[in-house]
Amino acid sequence: MSNIADAFDHGKAFIAFITCGDPDLATTAAAVREAAANGADLIELGIPFSDPTAEGPVIQEANVRALAGGVTTDKVFEFVRELRRDVTIPLVFMTYANVVFSYGSERFLARCREVGIDGLILPDVPFEEREEFLPVCRECGVKFISLIAPTSSDRIAMIAKEAEGFLYIVSSLGVTGTRGEISTDIASIVAEVRKNTDIPCAVGFGISKPEQARAMASVSDGAIVGSAIVKLLAQYGKDAPTYVGEYVKSMKDAMKTIG
């Protein structure tokens, strides 16, 4: 079992998102290993959902490919168990409420603990609905990761006070996907968080280029990249893992230059 805090204890963290089973689980496993070997500090593993309402086109299409390939929640658990033979960095699941709820929250989180999942991100479960999943997560020692958005304003303190694992700062309005520029004042959101908690803040949504990762990580504790990696999977398929490794290294190198 790893610990989410480990991802943030040696400089700025680079967090990579990969959809499980896109195009197949063997490729996902190779991509995760390449990412870890090239400096990723934490991996978000997406369990595909038929109707991912927080995702832009790139990750929506990855969900379609993965489901078409026959991935199920049970297969994802077996895949993580296998991955945990050698992958030691923190792993968290990112999926949608119904995937967990329909599996049975208690059964789902017991299996998370069993296979070595450290955290759970559900983008369609806001602070007001966290009681649906939080108590079970705590029972199983899985961190329930909260999100803060550019529109959160007066809600930041409330969310930050009860946050655990790390805080996922959503960089921009809208859905996931790469963006030319990020205009949200991340520094002031992080400052507001800091008044309430010491939990690390990682920024995601829209980050694709090394200079963006560097800029976002310089005002927070880390950068999260999803769509840019998923695009490599879409473009190169089974050959993608090498490209994922190279990409992660370029991002991580840029973040190392933060003084």
Partner: peptide
Amino acid sequence: NPNGRFGIHGGQYIPETLMNA
């Protein structure tokens, strides 16, 4: 959030981005 519920049903399962809206 008692007003958002009809028995066990209802609620507000949406992204944080929409909560203030």
